[in-house]
Simulated assay, not measured.
Amino acid sequence: MRNKIFILLTASALILGGCSSNSVDAEDTNENNTVISSEDEETPVGDEGEALESEDLDNSSLDATDNDSASDDESASEDDYSAQIKTEVEDVVSSSSSLTDEIDGICKLYEKYENIRMDAETQVEMDSLSLNQLYVWQAEAESLLDRINEADGSQYDAIYSSYTDWEQHVDEISQKMAYEYEGGSIQGMIIRVYSAERYRNEAVKLAEKLATINGDSDFEAPDFGPVGFYGSYDNPESCIICTEGMESGSYTLLICIKDNEDIKGYITGPDDFGSYAFTSDDGSITGTISFKKGAGLQITEAPDDCPVPAGSATIYDGAY
């Protein structure tokens, strides 16, 4: 996802751009397009100056409605690339020389549809186009599952069961990750983008499993950075959420502690050991955090009433 400030500025421009309207001169309308009756009521007239019957008005309204519906259907069709995406994913799979090349190719395909979304002229169009980014990684995950089944059916059932269990929590996790946009006009779009990234991360895990089955020791998973949900989706009240910060290369951290107020802050890094430095928004809490298959938080400084005291370490199992 591109940095937040670009997204917010784009959304603001779209919203402001949609506020203009065209005024109509009432006197001109009366003079040219209506006939004033004896009761001073305005009656719509046709091109030849004849008053339109009620049946004509009804038919005219229906025609307009039909035209609007056709335009909506055409717009939806133009925004929906699902069939095309499935074909494109299949092309990447068949033309890749390795799983590493395949994932790189799918990343480029995802970027293509991200650029299409960002180039949209209206916010409504951007919202609709965000679904296509989700389709890219869903199609790749399904393709990997099919190949795992073909390569080793004995492992497939367990892998597929784990996948479907994970999949039913995607919306919940993505919505929780979009907490900064709650109630905003672009919240739905941000949730879909986060959902696409959850499928991306899961697809990479499936690719790792397929590489192991195939004996492909050269597979290299790309580094997507620390953005994600860390913890168990069975216990979402205790978790860490990492999202992109306002500045390029920066990250915002939300520490959720059950029965306590959330701690908000930011992280910088990583250092040579892959750890990030954490500082709360008010500067009263500092520490370090590392990410891998989960998150490990070490607090170095905190006030006495802090729910995570200085010297404490907490492990959040699971990365989504």
Rank of each mutant, 00 (worst) to 15 (best):
S95K: 09
E140H: 14
S97T: 13
A120Y: 11
E125T: 13
S95T: 10
K112T: 05
S94H: 11
Q138G: 14
K112A: 01
W137K: 05
T87P: 02
N132L: 07
E111P: 00
V93W: 15
E102F: 10
E88P: 00
V89L: 06
M126K: 13
K112Q: 03
Q133L: 08
E90R: 14
L109G: 01
G105Y: 07
G105A: 07
Y81I: 02
S82Q: 11
E90Y: 11
Q133P: 03
L131H: 14
S94N: 14
E88S: 11
Q133V: 05
T122E: 07
V93F: 13
D119L: 13
Y110A: 12
S95A: 10
E111G: 02
A141I: 04
S128L: 10
N132F: 09
I103H: 02
E111H: 05
D91A: 10
S82L: 06
L109W: 01
W137H: 09
S130H: 02
E125F: 08
Y110P: 01
I116E: 11
M126A: 14
T87K: 15
A141H: 07
V89K: 05
A83G: 14
L109M: 02
V136G: 07
S97Y: 06
E140F: 14
E142V: 04
N132M: 06
K112F: 01
Y81K: 10
V136P: 04
Y110M: 07
D91V: 09
A83K: 13
K112L: 03
L144S: 06
S96A: 06
A83R: 13
Y113M: 01
M126H: 07
W137Y: 09
I116M: 12
D101R: 02
L99Y: 03
K108M: 11
V136Q: 03
Q133M: 08
E121Y: 12
E142F: 03
V136D: 05
V136K: 02
V92A: 03
Q123N: 12
V93N: 03
L144N: 09
K108Q: 10
E121D: 15
I85S: 03
S82F: 14
D91P: 00
L109R: 01
Q84G: 12
A83Q: 12
D127L: 10
L99W: 03
S94V: 08
T100W: 04
W137E: 06
E114V: 09
E102K: 04
E125R: 15
L109T: 01
D101C: 01
I103S: 02
E121L: 15
I85R: 03
L144F: 12
L109Y: 00
L134D: 05
S82Y: 13
Y113N: 00
S96N: 00
T87C: 04
I106R: 01
V136A: 05
S128V: 03
K86H: 12
V124W: 08
S96D: 01
K86L: 09
R117H: 02
N132D: 11
L144G: 08
I103W: 02
S97K: 12
G105D: 04
A120P: 06
L134K: 11
M118Y: 12
K86N: 12
L99F: 05
S98D: 02
Q133G: 14
A141P: 04
T122M: 08
